[in-house]
């Protein structure tokens, strides 16, 4: 079975007024083994969220009663720190900034690829549940020094360039999770647009070569149609 990762078992609250979009989100998240609750408006969503117990909230920016910015603002004011993925039809950079400033943790524009949405939910959940990250991370026979920005295998320093180091650190920190090209581009280069297929593939290929030279087993898996997953094949 070529199924998506079924490891996450978190609880997600979906606040979305458009039924078909909500169905889409719920179906995708359920297929990734999330437990999902859904609310059709801001007021109900806020009530669910304040009750607590969720690992991630997906929140529509434009809701009929209390809009997304109001909901996330209220949550943060009440001390609820559940990570929020804001979903909006408004793709303007101003909207993104506004959403993140109001307390959102990530931003996705409609229409979105469902695997991109679930990948972002997974990353948010991971980030939220992880304890403060140590300065040295070790996994799959690799160690990265987050202060010196260097990476080692059992054979020694990988000799990574700064961008390659950033790429490896992002993959390692989110090991086992599918990461889309856009997510990688945002995390490593800091820009929010689709960089196209080839570019990220080329950088991944370069990193794969260096890992291979350092005696590591194949660690970066291409998830067809989605992106990449880091971990043993």
């Amino acid at each position: 079975m070529n199924t998506a990762s079924t490891t996450p078992t978190g609880r997600v609250l979906v606040i979305e007024d458009d039924e078909s979009t909500a169905d889409e989100i719920v179906a995708e998240l359920t297929s990734h083994a999330f437990q999902v609750d859904r609310a059709g408006n801001g007021r109900a969503g806020l009530a669910f969220a304040l009750r607590g117990g969720y690992d991630v909230i997906t929140l529509d920016r434009m809701l009929p009663d209390i809009d997304g910015l109001g909901v996330v603002g209220t949550l943060r004011a009440q001390g609820v720190q559940t990570p929020v993925l804001m979903i909006s039809a408004l793709s303007d950079v101003d909207e993104r900034v506004r959403g993140l400033r109001a307390g959102g943790d990530d931003y996705l524009t409609k229409p979105f690829a469902s695997d991109e949405m679930s990948a972002r939910v997974e990353v948010l959940m991971r980030r939220h549940t992880q304890a403060a990250e140590p300065t040295r991370l070790s996994a799959y026979g690799l160690t990265i020094d987050r202060v010196a920005h260097t990476a080692f295998s059992q054979m020694g320093d990988l000799g990574l360039k700064p961008t390659e180091y950033q790429l490896l650190e992002f993959l390692l920190r989110n090991g086992g999770q599918t990461l889309t090209r856009t997510m990688i581009f945002e995390a490593v280069w800091g820009y929010h647009f689709d960089p196209g297929t080839n570019l990220i593939e080329v950088h991944i290929a370069g990193l794969r070569k260096k890992l291979e030279k350092a005696g590591c087993p194949p660690l970066i898996e291409t998830v067809r149609g989605s992106g990449y997953r880091f971990g043993p094949a």
């Binding site: 070529n2 199924t3 179906a27 995708e28 297929s31 229409p111 690829a113 469902s114 067809r224 149609g225």
Partner: peptide, 12 residues
Amino acid sequence: TRLRASIYRTHQ
């Protein structure tokens, strides 16, 4: 997008 989601899920 919905078509893509259906194809993707079936593909997966």
